[in-house]
Nucleic acid binder design. Structure first.
Length: 433
DNA sequence: TCTGGGGTCCTAGGACCC
DNA sequence: TCTGGGGTCCTAGGACCC
């Protein structure tokens, strides 16, 4: 384990008058789990991501692959060129979830106030005296030690607020512990590029550059009101966070966040050009979206169709349904109607997405197998689906069950076959590169 | 061979109502 | 005679996150 790097004053003892917040980030997480599960892959470049032939991108590159310049979000064909000997995998999300849960239990065990922000990241509160009298640094070290016993490693940033902790965690990966002592936040942040702060992406970065603002120190000196005029509500917050004086709380997620939309989108290996192909693609993604809605017990009353014509140009169209539904036969038909407004014969389409939203008031409900009653019994009166739709929904539910029991590739609707979904890259990126 | 997928939040413009 | 203005809802697009 590495030694602790302390930013700011020398480490005498703990002057944490206010708060101590940590951010734990698992190192090259997906790739590390693959190396854990495949001992023969350890020490070798491993890339988790979509295949080059399918216009995929890199989700996570192991540190051995990063040496070659491979990083997450890089197009796979480019990664392949940089590192032709890499071991590729499309990833095993359920397994990553499992390891992540074990890691989060460790953090939770070390301090009760934990805010998980993604599968591989969590904030935690280690303010001395709040839950324990122990030194925050000792707690962080122990978290790192215990996580490493699972076979993966993490980096931790420790500071007086979330922004500082998050940026500190990225200073020394992998296996780093970076501490920013109270009172040194502004000095720590000042020389860093604005892009180092989450919330500032490439668009804001170049907008800020146009204003002559390149570092967090420069950003911290801006007039909040002027920034509000330029960047809207995000403006003043940006200035506050860059100054190191942000006071956002670590908050335990006791109730899972309410889901606001469910969507499925797919990029195709070759652009789709005919109405037939597009209808089939919409049927395909709609069926996947329907299955996910039923799994989550959600019914929505808004449908969104999304088409990407090329890498820069995405268009969406939305419409309102008569009643909330989780049945792809209903919302898929609407999505196909929306196609008329977005697409004309001859236009090439690289991505098709269908989303359902508008769940307000529709509480998740438990569904029995072959349960035909879509009202849940406690909703305001809604239209009873016409008989053919009801039968089709029953078919969808039966299909869900067969897929659950025999694997998702055994069944698909007729012309769906050409869109077999076994190699899509559906994993999140490993941070920003 | 030429850049994913699943989300959230914000904004701007138009429709509509009073 | 001419032409208001605020509030709200809906839609489309974009930025950003991991």
């Amino acid at each position: 384990m590495r030694s602790v790097a302390i930013e700011g004053m020398p480490h005498t003892d703990l002057p944490w008058n206010g708060r101590a917040v940590g951010l734990m980030d698992l190192d090259a997480f997906f790739a590390s789990v693959e190396q854990l599960d495949h001992p023969e892959w350890r020490g070798r470049p491993v890339i988790v991501g979509g295949s080059a032939e399918r216009r995929g991108v890199v989700s996570t590159a192991s540190y051995e692959a990063r040496v070659y310049g491979v990083h997450s979000a890089m197009p796979s064909f480019q990664a392949q060129r940089l590192c032709p000997n890499a071991i590729w995998t499309h990833g095993h999300y359920a397994r990553y979830r499992e390891v992540s849960d074990q890691v989060m239990s460790i953090v939770q065990d070390e301090t009760p106030l934990v805010e998980q922000v993604s599968i591989d990241e969590a904030f935690f509160d280690v303010t001395p005296g709040r839950y324990s009298r122990e030194s925050p640094i000792d707690i962080c070290r122990r978290i790192q030690q215990r996580v490493s016993e699972l076979g993966v490693t993490c980096s931790i940033g420790l500071g007086t607020n979330k922004t500082v902790a998050k940026i500190a965690s990225e200073r020394q990966k992998p296996r780093g512990l970076t501490v920013v002592l109270p009172g040194t936040e502004a000095a720590f942040l000042a020389p860093l590029p604005v892009r180092a702060m989450s919330g500032i992406g490439s668009a804001s970065e170049s907008h800020l550059a146009d204003l002559g603002i390149r570092t967090l120190g420069q950003l911290a000196k801006q007039d909040p009101e002027r920034m509000r005029q330029i960047f809207g509500v995000a403006g003043p917050r940006m200035v506050l966070r860059a100054s190191g004086r942000e006071e956002s709380q670590v908050r335990a997620i006791d109730a899972p966040e309410e889901v606001k939309s469910v969507s499925i989108e797919r990029t195709f290996a070759h652009d789709l050009t005919t109405r037939d192909e597009l209808d089939a693609a919409i049927d395909h993604v709609s069926a996947l979206a329907g299955a996910r809605l039923r799994k989550k017990g959600l019914e929505g009353s808004q449908v969104t169709l999304k088409l990407k014509f090329d890498i820069r140009h995405t268009h969406t169209a939305q419409c309102q349904l008569d009643a909330p539904t989780d049945d792809e036969h209903v919302f898929g038909a609407e999505a196909k109607r929306l196609l008329d407004g977005l697409w004309r014969e001859g236009m090439g389409v690289r991505l098709v997405g269908v989303g359902v939203s508008g769940f307000d008031g529709a509480r998740p409900k438990q569904l029995g197998l072959f349960d035909l009653d879509s009202s849940g019994g406690n909703e305001e009166p809604q239209k009873t689906p016409k008989k053919p739709e009801r039968d089709l929904r029953a078919l969808s539910v039966a299909t869900d069950d067969i897929k659950r029991r025999f694997g998702s590739s055994v069944l698909s609707y007729g012309r769906d076959l050409r869109f077999r979904d076994d190699t899509s890259n559906t994993l999140p990126m490993d941070g920003r590169e």
